[in-house]
Protein backbone atom coordinates (compact mmCIF):
# COMPACT_ATOMS: atom_id res chain seq x y z
CA UNK A 1 0.00 0.00 0.00
CA UNK A 2 1.58 3.27 -1.06
CA UNK A 3 1.82 6.31 1.17
CA UNK A 4 0.01 8.28 -1.47
CA UNK A 5 -3.21 6.31 -0.95
CA UNK A 6 -2.87 6.61 2.80
CA UNK A 7 -2.73 10.37 2.61
CA UNK A 8 -5.82 10.69 0.46
CA UNK A 9 -7.93 8.02 2.13
CA UNK A 10 -8.68 7.86 5.83
CA UNK A 11 -9.39 4.60 7.54
CA UNK A 12 -8.77 2.51 10.62
CA UNK A 13 -6.25 -0.18 11.39
CA UNK A 14 -7.43 -3.32 13.11
CA UNK A 15 -5.06 -6.22 13.89
CA UNK A 16 -2.55 -4.74 11.52
CA UNK A 17 -5.00 -4.73 8.64
CA UNK A 18 -5.87 -1.39 7.12
CA UNK A 19 -9.50 -0.79 6.36
CA UNK A 20 -10.21 1.95 3.88
CA UNK A 21 -13.04 4.09 5.19
CA UNK A 22 -15.39 3.45 2.31
CA UNK A 23 -15.84 -0.17 3.37
CA UNK A 24 -18.79 -0.35 5.71
CA UNK A 25 -19.10 -4.07 6.21
CA UNK A 26 -16.33 -6.59 5.77
CA UNK A 27 -16.88 -10.34 5.91
CA UNK A 28 -13.68 -12.34 5.64
CA UNK A 29 -13.21 -16.10 5.65
CA UNK A 30 -16.59 -16.35 7.33
CA UNK A 31 -17.54 -19.80 8.50
CA UNK A 32 -20.61 -21.26 10.20
CA UNK A 33 -20.74 -24.78 11.55
CA UNK A 34 -23.68 -26.45 13.25
CA UNK A 35 -22.63 -29.49 15.26
CA UNK A 36 -24.97 -32.45 14.67
CA UNK A 37 -24.87 -35.96 16.12
CA UNK A 38 -23.57 -37.18 12.75
CA UNK A 39 -20.73 -34.70 12.75
CA UNK A 40 -20.40 -31.04 11.91
CA UNK A 41 -22.64 -29.48 9.31
CA UNK A 42 -20.80 -26.64 7.56
CA UNK A 43 -23.29 -24.07 6.34
CA UNK A 44 -20.89 -21.36 5.20
CA UNK A 45 -17.20 -21.59 4.48
CA UNK A 46 -14.59 -19.13 3.22
CA UNK A 47 -17.15 -16.48 2.55
CA UNK A 48 -15.61 -13.12 1.65
CA UNK A 49 -17.67 -10.05 0.94
CA UNK A 50 -17.03 -6.33 1.22
CA UNK A 51 -19.89 -3.90 1.24
CA UNK A 52 -19.20 -0.22 0.66
CA UNK A 53 -20.75 2.75 2.40
CA UNK A 54 -24.09 3.86 1.01
CA UNK A 55 -24.33 0.69 -1.00
CA UNK A 56 -27.48 -1.36 -1.40
CA UNK A 57 -26.67 -5.03 -1.80
CA UNK A 58 -29.21 -7.77 -2.37
CA UNK A 59 -28.37 -11.38 -1.73
CA UNK A 60 -30.01 -14.08 -3.75
CA UNK A 61 -29.66 -17.84 -3.56
CA UNK A 62 -31.58 -21.05 -3.12
CA UNK A 63 -33.55 -21.75 0.04
CA UNK A 64 -31.43 -23.20 2.81
CA UNK A 65 -28.14 -21.99 1.33
CA UNK A 66 -27.31 -20.00 4.45
CA UNK A 67 -28.37 -16.48 3.45
CA UNK A 68 -30.34 -15.96 6.65
CA UNK A 69 -27.53 -17.52 8.71
CA UNK A 70 -25.12 -15.02 7.22
CA UNK A 71 -27.44 -12.09 7.87
CA UNK A 72 -28.11 -13.08 11.47
CA UNK A 73 -24.36 -13.45 11.99
CA UNK A 74 -23.89 -9.88 10.75
CA UNK A 75 -26.71 -8.82 13.09
CA UNK A 76 -24.86 -10.56 15.91
CA UNK A 77 -27.79 -12.84 16.70
CA UNK A 78 -25.92 -15.96 15.65
CA UNK A 79 -22.37 -16.68 16.81
CA UNK A 80 -19.57 -16.85 14.25
CA UNK A 81 -17.75 -20.20 13.95
CA UNK A 82 -14.75 -18.86 12.06
CA UNK A 83 -13.49 -15.83 10.17
CA UNK A 84 -14.44 -12.28 10.87
CA UNK A 85 -17.20 -9.73 10.45
CA UNK A 86 -16.31 -6.06 10.86
CA UNK A 87 -18.42 -2.91 10.72
CA UNK A 88 -16.19 0.08 9.87
CA UNK A 89 -13.22 -2.06 10.87
CA UNK A 90 -14.63 -2.99 14.27
CA UNK A 91 -15.33 -6.70 14.75
CA UNK A 92 -18.94 -7.57 15.50
CA UNK A 93 -19.48 -8.81 19.04
CA UNK A 94 -23.16 -9.50 19.56
CA UNK A 95 -26.19 -7.53 18.41
CA UNK A 96 -26.49 -3.77 18.62
CA UNK A 97 -28.52 -0.86 17.29
CA UNK A 98 -25.78 0.11 14.81
CA UNK A 99 -27.13 -2.75 12.71
CA UNK A 100 -30.88 -2.38 12.30
CA UNK A 101 -32.79 -5.48 11.29
CA UNK A 102 -36.04 -5.83 9.40
CA UNK A 103 -37.18 -9.38 9.97
CA UNK A 104 -39.17 -11.57 7.64
CA UNK A 105 -42.16 -11.47 9.97
CA UNK A 106 -42.80 -7.92 11.15
CA UNK A 107 -41.98 -8.95 14.76
CA UNK A 108 -43.80 -6.02 16.27
CA UNK A 109 -44.86 -6.19 19.90
CA UNK A 110 -48.56 -6.83 19.28
CA UNK A 111 -49.64 -5.22 22.55
CA UNK A 112 -48.00 -1.90 21.66
CA UNK A 113 -49.24 0.76 19.27
CA UNK A 114 -47.38 1.50 16.04
CA UNK A 115 -45.84 4.58 17.64
CA UNK A 116 -44.77 2.71 20.78
CA UNK A 117 -43.12 0.03 18.67
CA UNK A 118 -41.00 2.62 16.87
CA UNK A 119 -40.35 4.50 20.12
CA UNK A 120 -39.02 1.35 21.77
CA UNK A 121 -35.88 1.64 19.65
CA UNK A 122 -35.78 5.43 19.46
CA UNK A 123 -35.86 5.76 23.26
CA UNK A 124 -32.94 3.40 23.47
CA UNK A 125 -30.81 5.06 20.79
CA UNK A 126 -31.55 8.69 21.67
CA UNK A 127 -31.69 8.63 25.48
CA UNK A 128 -30.73 12.29 25.78
CA UNK A 129 -33.39 13.67 23.46
CA UNK A 130 -36.55 15.07 25.02
CA UNK A 131 -39.73 13.07 24.96
CA UNK A 132 -41.22 15.28 22.25
CA UNK A 133 -38.11 15.03 20.11
CA UNK A 134 -38.15 11.26 20.32
CA UNK A 135 -41.84 11.18 19.49
CA UNK A 136 -41.20 13.46 16.55
CA UNK A 137 -38.52 11.12 15.20
CA UNK A 138 -40.87 8.14 15.48
CA UNK A 139 -43.73 10.07 13.91
CA UNK A 140 -41.51 11.29 11.09
CA UNK A 141 -40.62 7.76 10.03
CA UNK A 142 -44.16 6.46 10.46
CA UNK A 143 -45.24 9.32 8.25
CA UNK A 144 -42.57 8.33 5.72
CA UNK A 145 -43.95 4.81 5.48
CA UNK A 146 -47.45 6.18 5.02
CA UNK A 147 -48.88 5.39 8.45
CA UNK A 148 -49.70 8.91 9.64
CA UNK A 149 -53.25 7.81 10.42
CA UNK A 150 -52.29 4.77 12.46
CA UNK A 151 -49.94 6.08 15.16
CA UNK A 152 -52.12 4.86 17.97
CA UNK A 153 -53.38 1.64 16.44
CA UNK A 154 -52.29 -1.51 18.21
CA UNK A 155 -49.86 -3.53 16.11
CA UNK A 156 -52.19 -6.53 16.15
CA UNK A 157 -54.91 -4.44 14.52
CA UNK A 158 -52.73 -3.68 11.50
CA UNK A 159 -52.55 -5.78 8.36
CA UNK A 160 -49.41 -7.74 7.50
CA UNK A 161 -48.30 -5.05 5.05
CA UNK A 162 -48.94 -2.20 7.49
CA UNK A 163 -47.05 -4.09 10.20
CA UNK A 164 -44.05 -4.42 7.90
CA UNK A 165 -44.26 -0.68 7.24
CA UNK A 166 -43.92 -0.14 10.98
CA UNK A 167 -40.98 -2.58 10.88
CA UNK A 168 -39.31 -0.40 8.22
CA UNK A 169 -39.98 2.78 10.23
CA UNK A 170 -38.59 1.14 13.37
CA UNK A 171 -35.40 0.11 11.59
CA UNK A 172 -34.72 3.50 9.99
CA UNK A 173 -35.69 5.48 13.10
CA UNK A 174 -32.75 4.13 15.11
CA UNK A 175 -30.39 5.50 12.42
CA UNK A 176 -28.28 2.36 12.06
CA UNK A 177 -24.99 2.22 10.17
CA UNK A 178 -26.11 -0.92 8.38
CA UNK A 179 -29.62 -2.04 7.60
CA UNK A 180 -30.16 -5.78 7.40
CA UNK A 181 -33.29 -6.99 5.67
CA UNK A 182 -34.19 -10.66 5.83
CA UNK A 183 -36.70 -11.22 3.05
CA UNK A 184 -38.88 -8.47 4.49
CA UNK A 185 -41.54 -8.70 1.80
CA UNK A 186 -41.59 -12.47 1.41
CA UNK A 187 -44.88 -12.86 3.23
CA UNK A 188 -46.74 -10.16 1.34
CA UNK A 189 -48.86 -10.30 -1.80
CA UNK A 190 -47.21 -8.91 -4.93
CA UNK A 191 -49.19 -5.65 -4.93
CA UNK A 192 -48.29 -4.79 -1.36
CA UNK A 193 -44.75 -5.93 -2.04
CA UNK A 194 -44.39 -3.40 -4.87
CA UNK A 195 -45.75 -0.63 -2.66
CA UNK A 196 -43.34 -1.44 0.12
CA UNK A 197 -40.38 -1.67 -2.26
CA UNK A 198 -41.20 1.86 -3.39
CA UNK A 199 -41.44 3.08 0.19
CA UNK A 200 -38.21 1.37 1.15
CA UNK A 201 -36.25 2.77 -1.77
CA UNK A 202 -37.71 6.23 -1.26
CA UNK A 203 -36.53 6.40 2.35
CA UNK A 204 -33.26 4.78 1.44
CA UNK A 205 -32.58 7.38 -1.28
CA UNK A 206 -32.86 9.99 1.42
CA UNK A 207 -30.92 8.28 4.19
CA UNK A 208 -28.41 6.28 2.13
CA UNK A 209 -27.90 3.71 4.86
CA UNK A 210 -25.77 0.77 3.78
CA UNK A 211 -28.27 -2.03 3.21
CA UNK A 212 -27.98 -5.78 2.88
CA UNK A 213 -31.17 -7.47 1.83
CA UNK A 214 -32.00 -11.11 1.28
CA UNK A 215 -34.60 -11.85 -1.33
CA UNK A 216 -35.97 -14.65 -3.43
CA UNK A 217 -37.37 -12.32 -6.01
CA UNK A 218 -35.09 -11.64 -8.99
CA UNK A 219 -36.94 -8.46 -10.03
CA UNK A 220 -36.82 -7.12 -6.49
CA UNK A 221 -33.11 -7.85 -6.33
CA UNK A 222 -32.41 -5.88 -9.52
CA UNK A 223 -34.76 -2.99 -8.77
CA UNK A 224 -33.32 -2.24 -5.33
CA UNK A 225 -29.64 -3.10 -5.58
CA UNK A 226 -26.35 -1.59 -6.60
CA UNK A 227 -24.92 -5.10 -6.55
CA UNK A 228 -26.64 -8.46 -6.50
CA UNK A 229 -24.67 -11.11 -4.64
CA UNK A 230 -25.42 -14.66 -5.67
CA UNK A 231 -24.70 -17.40 -3.17
CA UNK A 232 -23.93 -20.99 -4.08
CA UNK A 233 -26.11 -23.75 -2.68
CA UNK A 234 -25.14 -25.19 0.68
CA UNK A 235 -23.53 -26.93 2.40
CA UNK A 236 -20.29 -24.95 2.39
CA UNK A 237 -21.99 -22.06 0.65
CA UNK A 238 -19.96 -19.07 -0.49
CA UNK A 239 -20.29 -16.17 -2.87
CA UNK A 240 -20.88 -17.56 -6.35
CA UNK A 241 -21.06 -14.43 -8.44
CA UNK A 242 -21.64 -10.71 -8.09
CA UNK A 243 -23.61 -8.64 -10.57
CA UNK A 244 -23.26 -4.86 -10.73
CA UNK A 245 -26.49 -3.08 -11.51
CA UNK A 246 -25.60 0.14 -13.22
CA UNK A 247 -28.97 1.87 -13.30
CA UNK A 248 -28.79 5.42 -12.09
CA UNK A 249 -30.55 6.53 -8.93
CA UNK A 250 -33.15 7.57 -8.08
CA UNK A 251 -34.81 4.83 -10.06
CA UNK A 252 -38.40 4.35 -10.94
CA UNK A 253 -39.91 0.95 -11.53
CA UNK A 254 -40.93 1.99 -15.02
CA UNK A 255 -37.48 3.21 -16.08
CA UNK A 256 -35.85 0.08 -14.70
CA UNK A 257 -38.23 -2.22 -16.55
CA UNK A 258 -37.76 -0.30 -19.78
CA UNK A 259 -33.98 -0.19 -19.53
CA UNK A 260 -32.28 -2.21 -22.30
CA UNK A 261 -29.92 -3.90 -19.81
CA UNK A 262 -32.75 -5.10 -17.55
CA UNK A 263 -33.29 -8.41 -19.28
CA UNK A 264 -29.57 -9.06 -19.55
CA UNK A 265 -29.30 -8.70 -15.76
CA UNK A 266 -32.36 -10.79 -15.24
CA UNK A 267 -31.08 -13.55 -17.51
CA UNK A 268 -27.75 -13.52 -15.71
CA UNK A 269 -29.41 -14.05 -12.33
CA UNK A 270 -31.81 -16.70 -13.55
CA UNK A 271 -29.04 -18.57 -15.34
CA UNK A 272 -27.09 -18.61 -12.07
CA UNK A 273 -30.05 -19.83 -10.03
CA UNK A 274 -31.01 -22.52 -12.54
CA UNK A 275 -27.45 -23.65 -12.95
Amino acid sequence: MSTATLSTETGTTENGIFYPSNVMLDLSKLKKVYPTPKGDYVVLEDLDLQIMKEEFVTIIGHSGCGKTTMLSMIAGLNPISGGNIAVLGKPVKGPGPDRGVIFQSPSLMPWMTALENVLLGVNKVFPHATKTQRKDIAKYYLHKVGLEGAFNKKAMELSQGMQQRVGIARAFAIKPKVLLLDEPFGMLDSLTRGELQDILIEIWNKEKITAVMITHDVDEAIFLADRVVMMTSGPRAKIGDILNIDFERPRSRKSVLEHPDYYTYRKHLIDFLEH
Binding site: L77, G94, P95, G100, F103, S107, L120
Partner: peptide
Protein backbone atom coordinates in the same frame (compact mmCIF):
# COMPACT_ATOMS: atom_id res chain seq x y z
CA UNK B 1 -38.65 -12.75 17.26
CA UNK B 2 -39.48 -10.44 20.17
CA UNK B 3 -36.31 -11.48 21.98
CA UNK B 4 -34.31 -10.80 18.81
CA UNK B 5 -35.86 -7.35 18.53
CA UNK B 6 -34.94 -6.68 22.16
CA UNK B 7 -31.40 -7.91 21.44
CA UNK B 8 -30.97 -5.77 18.33
CA UNK B 9 -32.21 -2.71 20.22
CA UNK B 10 -29.97 -3.71 23.13
CA UNK B 11 -32.73 -3.15 25.69
Amino acid sequence: DYINVAKVLKL
